[in-house]
Each structure stands twice: as structure tokens, then as C-alpha cells.
Design a protein around this nucleic acid. Structure first.
Lengths: 204, 204
DNA sequence: GTCTATACAGAGATAGAC
DNA sequence: GTCTATCTCTGTATAGAC
């Protein structure tokens, strides 16, 4: 039974199926054979389009990051939003992708998360830094290292509040959320209490 | 040819050999059979002592962390060292284990690094926090969240300056080092410039 | 309790025929 | 482009020797 499809359709079909399985069963527990039998192709066909299982993961990660970057770019360029509103939305987006990229509750994949964080910093860093700079010109923030501070914040939020990394108790998590908000204020040079909403947001 | 050894000797032998191979060839490229033939034991023997290749990695990581923790505990309890001297030594230790745990230049293992960071935060966090508290009583530092701030700093230093995570140019690295020193001062409430040596240290 | 030998299932990946 | 056959490697399982 030999079904020929256009290259784009095939690539897309593999990607969609893999993504669904990764998010449902977890990356490690999804086998190549799972993907193959879900779309009824042979192993050779899979490896004709992707060099490895890992490459499929990369493609999925990049696609997600691209979508998130576009969203944050749109936000940061919106003239009708205040700096605070932008910061709020950006942090919400960052928080909500905590584990969403990986699949909820599934034993997540360290390599996938490593790549995710790397791309996140590389792509989102400059965009968020531009919002910080806007805050600087408005006198809300004061820092000599907007870009670098943003990178630090992304790294902290994605690691410290990543459930597969640390399993805090409710109280521990609340304390970390408060400490993070306080740290944000310190290193962005923002007024004390101006990021109280961040502590709220991250506690849950 | 049947060689009987004491359980501890055998466990240690497997551990040492695995560590050497992991650091030489990289974790992924080291096969169980590599380990077996290096010490001439049967596969059954390996699995008699360790449940999996990953469990061996865990044991290696834990042993390294234990050594590092002991060293930092010794430092932090030394009555003849100033807080600044302690901070210097601690940061040096943290920096020098950047990739040393993994093996230089080898394609590192994300899972191994994830575990390393988790254990590092869990074990070193409280010890370093005690040094921060000493600094607080001496009026050098001021923070409401010593423990949490230490966790943030460990995470930042281990991720941002991890070569397998980001490949900064020399200038980028220098800027990140300065930004990190500045962030340390902010969130620890230390005097400006007091962590200039950190910027120096991390630039290389 | 400790160790060898070996066979085998299941995973990722490759080669080459069609 | 697609498929089948095959390879390597991890990990399980077993039977048995000391």
C-alpha cells in the first residue's frame, strides 16, 4: 500500500502527529513506531523527512517559539498599551508556557526544555528588552543592562517555577514568587511593590 | 574467569569507569558495553549493581555534589574568613564546575545537567544562604529572601554561563558577567562595586 | 550473595531495493 | 518517495557457577 503525498503535506502530517503524541504521552514515552502506526507510514518514510526523533522535537519547539515571539512582538509594539500592561501580558505568556510546551504532567524531556529555554532567551530577549527600554524612557525602570536583565529574568522564571525541575510545597512556591517579584523590582530599578501582581501570578 | 570483589569495590569500580568514559566520550556516546569491556564484567553484573545507565549518572552527579557541598560547608564555617572571602571562594567553586561535571567539549547530556542544577540548588542553597545571613548581621547585605536569592543566583550563573546552553561571543560574555555582578549587588543589597571581582571572574 | 553467559524484546537509526 | 530488512544499543530475563 503505497500512498504518495506532497512533501509539505507529509512533513506537516508527521509534525502534527508527533506533537500530539509528545504532548499526550510525553516525548520519551512516544516511540517512532507510535508515530508511524498513527499515520500508517514506514520507518524509512519518517527518516526521509526527518533525520531523527530529536529533529522533530526541534521543529515543534521552533514553531511554538515563533508563535509566542510573534505574539509578544505584537504586544510590545501596541501603542495603546502601557508598559505595565505589556509586562503583565508578557509574564502571563511566559508563565503559561511553563509546561504547556511539553505536555501536562508528562515526564518531560530535559533536552526539549533546554532547547526551549535557549530559543526563548534568544528570540524573546530583545523584544522584551525593548519594553524595558520604553519603561526607562518613561522613568519607570532604571537599569544599565536591559537586555541582560531580561535574560536573567527569563532564565529564573522558567527554571525556578518549572515543576519538573523543583517540586516546591505551596508555601515554598509562594515565597519564591514573592522573592522573584522583589528581585524583578531590584534589578529593573522599579518602584517597590510595582510587581506585586507577579507574586500573585506565580503563586498558583 | 570469575573475579569476586566486595560489593563496595565493585560499585566503586563501575562508578569510576563510567565517570571516566562519560567525561571522555560523553554520556550518550558511552554504551553499557563500553563500561563492561573496560572492566571485564558481564552485563548481568552491571545490572546487579545499578538499575540503569541513568542511575549510574545520578550516582556520579550526587557524589560530585556531595564533595562540592562539603567543601562549601567547610568554607562557610571557617571563622577566619571574611564574608567577602567566602563569597569569592564559593563563586569560584560554582564557576569551575560549569562544565567540569560533564566533560569538556563533549556533547553534554541535558538530563545530567538538569539533575546537577537541581541537586546544587537543594544542597548548596542553605549553606550559601548562611553566609548571606552572616553578611546581613555584619551590615554588608540586606535582603528579605536570603535563601531564595541564593537559589536565583545559582540558577543564573549555572545557566547563563553554561557554554552548552549559550555560545556567547567574548564581548557578550563580558557584558553578561558585568550584568550578573550588578544583579548580585542589587538583590543582595550590597554596596555598588563590591562584586566587581565577580565580573572579572566570569568574563574569562 | 556475587558473578558469568547468553538470549531476547524493543527502541532509534540506516541501507538499499522498488 | 516509499518501503522492507537490518543494525546497534539499552534493558530484561534466565540459567547456572562459585
Amino acid at each position: 500500500m503505497r500512498k504518495v503525498k506532497s512533501p509539505e503535506a507529509r512533513r506537516g502530517e508527521i509534525l502534527e502527529t508527533a506533537q500530539h503524541l509528545f504532548e499526550t504521552k510525553g516525548y520519551d514515552r512516544t516511540t517512532i513506531n507510535d508515530i508511524l502506526s498513527a499515520i500508517s507510514i514506514a520507518k524509512g518514510t519518517f527518516y526521509y523527512y526527518y533525520k531523527s526523533k530529536e529533529e522533530v522535537m526541534d521543529a515543534i519547539v521552533l514553531r511554538k517559539i515563533a508563535a509566542q515571539t510573534a505574539e509578544i512582538e505584537r504586544l510590545s509594539g501596541d501603542e495603546y498599551l502601557s508598559v505595565n500592561e505589556k509586562m503583565f501580558s508578557i509574564l502571563m505568556l511566559l508563565r503559561d508556557t511553563q509546561t504547556a510546551h511539553i505536555g501536562n504532567g508528562q515526564p518531560s524531556n530535559a533536552e526539549m526544555q533546554r532547547k526551549l529555554l535557549g530559543e526563548l532567551v534568544k528570540n524573546l530577549g530583545p523584544v522584551i528588552a525593548s519594553v524595558i527600554n520604553q519603561g526607562k524612557t518613561e522613568g519607570l525602570f532604571a537599569t544599565d543592562y536591559p537586555q541582560e536583565v531580561v535574560e536573567q529574568l527569563i532564565v529564573m522564571i522558567k527554571i525556578i517555577f518549572e515543576p519538573s525541575m523543583f517540586s516546591w510545597t505551596a508555601e515554598e512556591r509562594t515565597t519564591r514568587a514573592r522573592a522573584f517579584a522583589s528581585t524583578m523590582e531590584s534589578i529593573l530599578g522599579a518602584a517597590q511593590g510595582s510587581f506585586n501582581f507577579v507574586a500573585e501570578m506565580l503563586s498558583s
